[in-house]
């Protein structure tokens, strides 16, 4: 708890000289939710892919502290080890469930895949764990043999969460997890996410352009513009007392409800 789980320094991946992710530094602490906000094209999704090892940086350092407390420099880690980390220490929730689920494999199979990927070979155990995770994300366990192809968007997103959390990852990356959902479904999902994050004490990096989502979930915020972090701080401080011109603009554009 006394050390960041992820420490990024001057991480750069430039698509053009002023596009991509430019010299970003950040720390993620165990159990905290770090929000990354900014408009489309500001580099927030690129940053997420870099930090989660899905894309490699041109320069900079990304240090991850694994379960055993061993520091791992992700930029120098071979793909095999990165993929293993991806299955054990990380979770990745994609905006589009189609990118994060196997739509023609049953819900139970989707959840069980990571367990089987780390060597679980007991059908009964896998099924029991899958059932309990369905309950955890508020999907009727009777749907365990249903294919996500026939699930609603909200259910697909819940299944994606279960599929990721089943191996107790310590750091979860979320890219606009409520992106394509109806407002009412969004609220329910956010509530589930908030509860799980709190109960499991996992660290989360969440990319969103929805300030409401950021306010509800994130402890801290980074505001990105044109590939750079232009403001950061406590979520309510950044949103209530924004300093940078761009952040003020972002906050001013939130629809006021009530």
């Amino acid at each position: 708890m006394d050390k960041p789980i992820l420490t990024a320094r001057e991480v750069t991946r430039a698509y053009t000289p002023d596009q991509g992710c430019l010299g970003v530094s950040l720390d993620v602490w165990p159990g905290e939710v770090l929000g990354i906000v900014g408009e489309s094209g500001s580099g927030k999704s690129t940053l997420l892919r870099l930090l989660s090892g899905q894309e490699s940086a041109d320069s900079g350092s990304i240090l991850f502290l694994d379960r055993a407390g061993t520091p791992i420099e992700l930029t120098e880690t071979p793909e095999s080890a990165l993929r293993y980390l991806g299955r054990t220490e990380f979770g990745i929730i994609h905006q589009n469930p189609r990118d994060g689920l196997r739509l023609r494999i049953s819900a139970g199979g989707n959840i069980g895949e990571r367990l089987m990927g780390v060597g679980n070979r007991h059908y009964g155990d896998i099924r029991a764990i899958a059932e309990s995770w369905l309950t955890e994300v508020e999907i009727d366990p009777a749907r365990i043999d249903g294919k996500p192809l026939h699930f609603s968007g909200g259910m697909q997103q819940r299944l994606q969460i279960a599929r990721n959390l089943v191996t107790n990852p310590r750091l979860v990356f979320m890219d606009e997890p409520t992106g394509g959902l109806d407002v009412s479904v969004q609220a329910k999902l956010l509530d589930t996410l908030k509860r799980l994050v709190h109960d499991l004490g996992i660290a989360v990096i969440i990319v969103t352009h929805d300030m409401g989502v950021a306010r509800l979930l994130a402890d801290r915020l980074l505001v990105m513009k044109q590939g750079r972090v232009i403001e950061s701080g406590l979520t309510d401080q950044v949103l209530d007392d924004p300093h940078a011109a761009y952040t003020q603009q972002l906050v001013a554009s939130i629809l006021q409800v009530n």
């Binding site: 793909e79 993929r83 049953s106 069980g112 990927g117």
Partner: peptide, 19 residues
């Protein structure tokens, strides 16, 4: 294959048993 990521093979067998 290179990384012996064979979890999905068991997913196939899991689906069989489930079905």
């Amino acid at each position: 294959h290179a990384l012996t990521e064979y979890g999905v093979m068991h997913v196939k067998l899991y689906e069989d048993i489930a079905q």
